[in-house]
Computed example of a mutant assay.
Amino acid sequence: MENRSMLLSQVITGSVAVIASLGAALITSNYTLESAKVQVEKDMIVLSAANANENAKEIRARAEEYLLAFQDLMELLGNERVVVEDAHQQIHKMDKLAQGLLVYGGAELGTASFTLNLAIKNALLSSSKDDVTDVFNAANAWYPAYFSVIKTYDNHAMPKKAKADLQDKLMSSLLGELNKAFKTDSQRSAF
C-alpha cells in the first residue's frame, strides 16, 4: 500500500510538473507572439512613413520642375520678341509635367496644374485682361493645392503630429466658441 501511495504521489508530482511546464511554455509563447505582433506593427509604421517620405520627395521634385518650367515660360513671354512656337513648346513641356503631378500628386494638384496651363494657353490666344487675370488666379490656386497634398504626406509620415495638430484645432475651436459665448453673456448682463 505504501508503494501504491508513493506511486500516486509521484504521478501527482509529475502531473503538476508537466502542467506547470506547459503553463510556462504557453505564457512564454504568448508573450513572444505579442512581442512579434508589436514589432510587425512598428515595422509597418516605419515602412509606411518611409514610403510617404519618398512619395513626398517625388512630388516636391516634380513640383519644382513644373514651377521652373512656368518661370521659364514667364521669362520667355517677357521678352520683347516672342516666338509663338517656343511658347507652345514650353506649354507642351508644362502639360507633360502636369501629367506627372497628376499621377504622383493626385487629382487636386494635377487639376490645379492643368488649370494653370489652360489659363496660360487662353491668355496667349486672346488679348483680354480677363484671361491674364485667370492666369494669376490659377497660379494663386496652384500653391494651396500643392501644400495641401504635401501636408497629407507630412501627416501620414508623422501621425502623432497630425493627431496633435487636430487636437490643437479642436481646442482652439472650442475655446473660440466659449469665448464667443462668454462675450455674448457679458454683453447681455451689461444691459
Rank of each mutant, 00 (worst) to 15 (best):
H88E: 13
V82G: 01
L124S: 03
H92L: 14
Q99W: 06
L125V: 10
S127G: 15
A56W: 03
L125F: 06
Y153E: 05
L118R: 08
A69S: 06
F147P: 02
F147M: 08
L67C: 08
M158K: 10
D95T: 12
E54G: 04
L97G: 02
D134V: 01
V149P: 06
M74S: 14
A145T: 09
N79L: 10
N79T: 07
N79G: 05
F114M: 13
N117R: 11
L118D: 12
Y143A: 10
V83R: 00
E85W: 01
R60L: 08
I150N: 02
S128M: 05
D72A: 10
H88F: 11
N122C: 06
K93L: 12
I91G: 01
P144L: 03
P159R: 05
L116W: 03
G100F: 13
K160Q: 15
A50W: 08
P144V: 01
L116K: 01
K151I: 10
N122F: 04
N140H: 04
A50I: 13
I91C: 00
A119Y: 02
L125H: 04
F70C: 07
F114E: 14
A162I: 08
L125Y: 03
R81D: 07
H92F: 14
A123R: 03
A63T: 15
H156Y: 04
G110N: 09
L118Y: 02
D131C: 06
K121D: 07
F114R: 07
A56S: 11
L76Y: 00
A69R: 00
R81Y: 05
A87R: 01
N155L: 08
K160S: 14
E64Y: 05
Y143C: 03
V149C: 10
E65V: 02
K96T: 10
A56V: 09
F147V: 07
L102P: 09
R81W: 01
H92Y: 09
A61E: 01
K129H: 06
F70R: 01
K161E: 12
K121R: 14
I150A: 09
A56R: 06
L73K: 00
L68Q: 11
K160N: 13
M158D: 14
D72S: 11
A63M: 10
A141P: 07
H88G: 02
L125N: 05
L125I: 08
D72M: 04
L109M: 11
K161F: 11
A141L: 04
I120R: 00
K93R: 05
M94V: 08
H156M: 12
K151F: 08
L124N: 01
D86K: 00
A61I: 02
D130R: 07
A52Y: 13
A145N: 04
A138G: 11
N55C: 11
T115V: 14
V149A: 05
N122E: 14
H156N: 07
N53H: 11
I150Q: 04
E58Q: 12
D131E: 15
A107R: 14
Q71H: 13
